[in-house]
């Protein structure tokens, strides 16, 4: 169909754009092994595995990681429930305020994070709610809903309504229909949405700086190190681990939603 080939200039520009996006991340991997611990010297004077052991024995890193994982897990769970409910309501029915609801879901990520953050912080202050694990969670779940919603609503739209009607005609009640017909159809979309929500929450820093009290999530720990570098080698190792950890859910989500154009009942 497209027998024509791209011009040399276009190919170079496209390749340069891709390289521009990836080389800085690769650089992180080199720095995790450098022997230099006082500056960001390039090329590294030597390579060592020493900093991995140092990082492994740091309790503050483990605490930050554990807090981040717990927050990400619970906010993903909340986002899965709220996002699916919202997508189910918006996808197959028309009701008053439908547009308003879809705008409301998107707003927390459409507006700059600092606005979400400072709004929540001043609301917590007004309501005399002390900053804790739960205040971090409230913020994270709010902006994670949209990721699940986006994935679920796309799948709901492709799913044929006649499948649900057939299930009801065959005697299943609403809950059985959900369990045996709807859920298997949207499962991979939910899993993909959940993974992306997890990655989003695990990485979030702007809203979290406003809703966390003394507690440090891993991104907050990194931010402290970026503003006032104290242990550069440990930061290098943590940065590399974060890259590896976030790549897994992204790759997972990619393989789950790939080739999902063939959902049962579609096009009938």
């Amino acid at each position: 169909m497209h027998s024509d080939r791209a011009s040399l200039g276009l190919r170079i520009a496209a390749a340069a754009g891709l390289l521009f996006m990836h080389l800085p991340i690769l650089l992180i991997f080199v720095y995790a092994f450098t022997t230099e611990d006082k500056s960001y010297q390039w090329p590294p004077p030597g390579l060592t595995l020493e900093w991995f052991a140092v990082t492994w024995n740091r309790p503050d890193v483990w605490e930050a990681l554990s807090l981040s994982l717990r927050v990400a897990a619970i906010s993903t769970a909340i986002a899965l429930v709220l996002g699916t409910l919202c997508a189910a309501a918006v996808a197959h029915t028309r009701f008053f305020g439908r547009e308003v609801i879809s705008l409301l879901v998107i707003l927390p990520i459409a507006l700059p994070g600092i606005i979400t953050g400072i709004s929540l912080r001043s609301a917590f202050n007004l309501a005399d709610i002390p900053f804790s694990f739960w205040t971090i969670l409230l913020g994270h779940a709010t902006f994670c809903v949209v990721v699940v919603y986006n994935n679920a609503v796309a799948r709901f739209r492709r799913m044929s309504g006649s499948l649900i009607e057939a299930s009801m005609d065959l005697g299943a009640n609403a809950f059985q229909t959900f369990r045996h017909v709807i859920l298997p159809n949207i499962a991979t979309a939910l899993l993909a949405g959940g993974m992306l929500a997890f990655a989003l929450s695990f990485d979030e820093v702007i809203v979290t700086t406003f809703t966390a009290g003394q507690q440090q999530t891993l991104p907050i720990w990194m931010l402290e190190e970026l503003v006032r570098p104290r242990q550069r080698p440990v930061t290098n190792v943590v940065a590399m681990v974060v890259v590896l950890v976030t790549f897994l859910p992204i790759l997972g989500a990619f393989y789950l939603t790939r080739g999902t154009d063939t959902v049962a009942g579609q096009g009938k």
């Binding site: 992180i28 990485d203 991104p219 970026l226 992204i250």
Partner: peptide, 15 residues
């Protein structure tokens, strides 16, 4: 790159 950590990306440019 879109989904990888925002802070890590900023950090790489500090390097």
């Amino acid at each position: 790159p879109l989904w990888s950590s925002y802070l890590v990306k900023v950090y790489s440019w500090k390097l």
